[in-house]
Design a protein around this nucleic acid. Structure first.
Length: 567
RNA sequence: UACCCCGUGGUGUAAUCGGUAACACUACAGGUUUUGGUCCUGUCAUUCCUGGUUCGAGUCCAGGCGGGGUAACCA
């Protein structure tokens, strides 16, 4: 879709997981094999945080010549859907990765069930009749030990019988659970007889109505890792406290391999939220126009905004992998897409806030076609021709009646160069009754085409323009941060995080005036509107001859910065 | 007031066996330029604190301080 030009593989930097794997390799573990997996739950769309996890897992496999599987962690049928499975596979492929094997945790349901019976038989698990509230009450608190369930010492044979009847569907949802028998006094709550199986009479997206009991994450994840022969199970920091349980299962079950869990810090970025729950809320509340709204930090949103796989991968390389909980400055993300698009995007001219210019000495009805470079960074992109006529549009911001110092754009009596074309001088300013500038009457110097000035005078200001007779009026949408606050999650007690939404995150340009060559812009193509920013033709809404432009990111704007500072 | 993890410049990461702070982004100051874009050059840290071990500590030890995680029949 956006693979205009192939780019070289990015360099990947070393991080602490390399040290851990090197140590395992040096110790002769796993017969020198390295295998990872990306294990999303199909209950939402992937976002930029997942991009990091994907790059880490697939990156490790690539670096060590190993494999990386895609595994859907689908142990909770009440939240998971086939639609998410589809989008996740699409997003991973689009990012440029190909998994080795594709698995679902549900592929292993029968084996996991057998493992559960094994734990019951060996006295390591029991069926518990406590209600949910009771289980939680018996578990104690963070600083207080729990109490043992009255069903904890139920004979194994009785638990086995009950567990089999749970599977057969003899009990309603929530009536009983299977729990591991570990330690109700453990300082780690995960070890206080965690629930292994719960009764859920729900339709599963893959196994349909076959099961009415489902394994919990903890009971499924490590065993699936082992069954897939994963060597290094990479996950985020919040699972660190689960690691003793992860290891406990592997210690007490006849699994075919011994994977190892390693945690790293999840990604946070300024001016956005990165939690599936919150993103889902934005979609359901229709605050955004779906998961692929260009303002969303989802892969599908970023893709539609005009981000490229190369830029996202480069971004992941620069942010690194560590165990420190940090928040990356959004400018790093923007820098990576600018860097990529600068090399590949064709240039074009578009006036977003037009003001009329009449060249009084330019013949009425005459059209000159001027050659313009498509990409100064890439000569092979060639040139195109842009029409110039007597009446033009220029950017309102490129004219000041009373120019501040260092302003070298257009002003009464001042001269600027029209990009690729002639130098013009402002002779007269016309206004409406309210005092708004409605038109600039200028003269052009016919001797100044293509940069030359016969007398050698320097004309520093260069502005973009569009012929009024040829201007294309196509939808242009300007996207900005979805949130106005740098840390949207950071709200005082009782304040909704949504109060940090940026009311101006989407602006539809009222009267865009684009150069005519843009009429033929295909969907899913990157452009740079010179001096403005990078734009991407919306891959869904653009139609032949009727492109829709999404602003990916603005260009750096040194002048705007200077002006803002001087205020 | 439980347990676990973490603490290097404005931000994010580096720093092989402890040997004298690196890279990217930002910011600022210049240069180049028919995009005030790109590109190029330069400037910005005594590594949370205190004490200890050592010829030498960001790296080891101890104690503080600070931040994060954890109490779903979610993942």
């Amino acid at each position: 879709m956006s693979h205009d030009t192939p780019t070289a593989p990015e360099k990947t930097y070393r991080h602490f997981i390399h040290d851990e794997i090197d140590a395992d390799l040096a110790a002769g573990k796993n017969d020198g094999r390295v295998q990872t997996r990306f294990p999303p739950e199909p209950n939402g769309y992937l976002h930029i945080g997942h991009v990091k996890a994907i790059c880490v897992n697939f990156g490790l496999a690539q670096k060590y010549g190993g494999k990386c599987n895609l595994r859907f962690d689908d142990t909770n049928p009440t939240k998971e859907e086939q639609e998410y499975v589809r989008s996740i596979q699409n997003d991973v492929r689009w990012l440029g990765f190909q998994w080795d094997a594709l698995f679902y945790a549900s592929d292993f349901f029968e084996q996991l069930y057998q493992y559960a019976e094994h734990l019951i038989t060996t006295g390591k698990a029991y069926v518990c009749d406590l209600t949910g509230d009771q289980v939680s009450e018996y578990r104690g608190r963070l600083d207080k030990p729990g109490r043992e369930s009255p069903f904890r010492n139920r004979p194994a044979a009785e638990s086995l019988d009950l567990f089999r009847r749970m599977r057969k569907g003899e009990f309603p949802d929530g009536a009983r659970t299977l729990r591991a028998k570990i330690d109700m006094a453990s300082p780690n709550p995960n070890l206080r007889d965690p629930v292994l199986y719960r009764i859920l009479h729900a339709h599963h997206h893959r196994t349909g109505g076959k099961w009415c009991i489902y394994p919990m994450y903890d009971f499924a994840h490590g065993q699936c890792d082992a069954l897939e022969k994963i060597t290094h199970s990479i996950c985020t920091l919040e699972f660190e406290i689960h690691r003793p349980l992860y290891d406990w299962f592997l210690d007490h079950l006849p699994v075919p391999a011994r994977p190892r869990q390693i945690e790293f810090a999840r990604l946070n970025i300024t001016y956005t939220v990165l939690s599936k729950r919150k993103l889902l809320e934005l979609v359901q509340a229709k605050i955004v126009h779906g998961w692929d709204d260009p303002r969303m930090p989802t892969i599908s949103g970023l893709r539609r905004r005009g981000y490229t796989p190369e830029a996202l991968r480069a971004f992941c390389d620069t942010i690194g992998v560590a165990r420190f909980n940090s928040t990356v400055d959004k400018q790093l993300l923007e820098n990576s897409i600018r860097e990529d698009l600068n090399k590949r995007a064709k240039r074009a001219m578009g006036v977003l806030d037009p003001i009329k210019v009449t060249l009084e000495n330019f013949p009425v009805g005459r059209v000159e076609w001027i050659e313009a470079v498509n990409n100064p960074e890439d000569p092979s992109a060639g040139t195109r021709r842009v029409p110039i006529t007597r009446t033009l549009w220029i950017e309102r911001d490129d004219f000041r009646e009373e120019p501040p110092k260092k302003f070298f754009r257009l002003a009464p009596g001042k001269e600027v160069r029209l990009r690729y074309a002639y130098c013009i001088t402002c002779k007269e300013v016309k206004k409406d009754a309210a005092g708004n500038v409605t038109e600039l009457v200028c003269t052009y110097d016919p001797e100044t085409l293509h940069g030359s000035t016969p007398d050698g005078r320097k004309v520093k200001g260069i502005i973009h323009w569009v012929s009024a007779d040829h201007a294309l009026d196509a939808p242009v949408r300007l996207y900005d941060h979805l949130f106005a606050a740098e840390f949207p999650d950071d709200v005082p007690e009782g304040v909704d995080w949504k109060s940090n939404l940026n009311p101006n995150s989407l602006t539809q340009v009222a009267t865009p005036k684009l150069e005519p060559s843009l009429r033929d812009a295909k969907p899913g193509v990157h452009y740079q509107f010179e001096r403005i920013g990078y734009f991407f033709t919306d891959p869904i809404e653009s139609k032949p001859g009727a492109p829709v432009f999404n602003r990916t990111v603005t260009l750096r704007d040194t002048w705007a910065k200077i002006e803002k500072r001087d205020e």
